[in-house]
Design a protein around this nucleic acid. Structure first.
Lengths: 117, 117, 117, 117
DNA sequence: GTGGTCTAGACCACT
DNA sequence: GTGGTCTAGACCACC
C-alpha cells in the first residue's frame, strides 16, 4: 500500500480495512491479524498498528479479547452502518464542494458518464 | 463562516475565496481587502490571513502591488483553471472513495437524483 | 455468565465464586470442580481456570488435596472475612468517587431510595 | 497526584480533570494547559498528556483549536452529562457488587451513616 | 509555542 | 503470543 502524504497513516489503514469489510474481503466475526502482524503487513510501527485497532474499536467495528486478539464485530448492521457513514462523508464534501464551484445536476451526470467511458 | 475542525483554516478560507471568484462574487482585477481586514472579516489571526494571500499568490490567483494592496489576477483563463483544478481534486477523492466502497455507476446516478429532490 | 470487557476474566470468575460462597450457594468444605470442568462451566481457557484456583488459594479461600481436587476452606470466619474485604473495596471506591463528584450524604441516601423503588 | 497501580495513568488524570470540572475548579470555555505543561504538572510523558486530551475530546468534554491549545467545551449541559455518567458507573458497580454480597437497603443506609460519623 | 503523528523500545497483564 | 500502557524523542503543520 502506498500512503498519501498529508493524511495520517492510521486513518488510511483504518479506511482500507473498512473498505475490505464492506467489499467482503474480511468477514463478520473474523480474527484480524495481531497488531504486530498488521505492522509487518503495512510496513508500519506496531504502535501505529495498535492505534488503528483502537480507532476501529472506538467505531465499534471490532473488539478485542484480552490475550487472544482482535475480532470483527459480528453485528450484521455494522457493515451497512459504516458503508453509509463513509459514503455520507464522501458525498457531503463532494456535493457541497461542487455546488460551491457552480456545478449543477446535469453537469454532474455528464462528469460521471465521462468517468465511466 | 463556520470552520471545520481538522482542516486548516488557511485552506478553508483560500477555498472560500476561490469559490467566490468562480461564482463571480469577486471580479477579475478586483482589489482584495488588506490582510488585517481579511483577518477581521473571517475572524482569524492576521498571520493566518497573510498566509492565505501567500497561498493565493503561489497559485497565481492574485498578486501584490507594493504599497497598494493585493489584486486578483485579470487573466481570463485563471478562473477556468482553478475551477478545473478544484473540481478534479473533489472528483478524484469522490470517485476513488465510492469505488472502494463498492458503488457502481448506476448507484451514483441514483444518489445524485435523490440529492436533488 | 457475561464477561465485562476491560476487567480480567480471572478476576470476574474469582469474584463470582466468592459471591456464591457468601450467598451460601457453595458450602464450607465443599469440593470445587476440577480446573478443566471449571473451564467448561464458565467457557474459559483451562489456563485461566487454573489461575483462578491459584488466586483463591492465595486468599486462603480454598486449598488443594493432591490427587483429590480443590476444596473450600472450612474456616467459619473466612466467609465474614471475604465479605468484609469485598465490601470494603466496593465502598471505598464508591464513597471516594462520589465525594470527588461532589455528592454529599443526603444525596447518597436519596440515590439509594430511588434505586430500591 | 499519586497514581494507583493497575489503572492507567491516562484514565486517572482524565478522571481528575473531569472531577475538577464538576467541582467548578475548571470553568466552561477555559483554556487547558498545553499538553507539555500538563505533562510537567502531573509528571508524566508529553505523549501521555496528549492522550488524555484526546480522551477528553472523544467524550466531547474539550476541543482543540489548532496551534492555539485545548479548551473546555462551553456546552452548559456537558457538566451534568459527565457528572451523571460518572455517577452511574460508580453506582452500578457499587449496587450490583453489594447486592451480590447479600447486602440489603437497610444495611447500605447504615454503612453510609457510619461513613459520615 | 501548540497540537498531531510516527517511530522505537520497554514492561506488564492476560490467555 | 496477544494487546495495553508508558516513556523518549523526532518531525511537521498550524497559528
Amino acid at each position: 500500500m502506498n500512503f498519501e502524504h498529508n493524511v495520517p497513516i492510521y486513518i488510511q489503514v483504518t479506511n482500507d480495512i473498512k473498505s475490505n469489510i464492506i467489499k467482503g474481503n474480511i468477514s463478520l466475526g473474523e480474527k484480524l491479524p495481531s497488531a504486530r502482524d498488521l505492522a509487518l503487513k503495512y510496513k508500519i510501527n506496531p504502535n501505529t498498528a495498535s492505534r488503528i485497532y483502537k480507532e476501529l474499536e472506538a467505531e465499534e467495528i471490532c473488539y478485542t479479547k484480552r490475550g487472544l486478539g482482535t475480532y470483527i464485530t459480528d453485528d450484521l448492521q455494522m457493515i451497512n452502518r459504516i458503508k453509509k457513514d463513509m459514503a455520507k462523508i464522501l458525498m457531503d464534501s463532494f456535493f457541497i464542494g461542487m455546488r460551491d464551484l457552480g456545478f449543477v445536476k446535469q453537469e454532474l451526470m455528464e462528469l460521471i458518464d465521462q468517468k465511466y467511458d
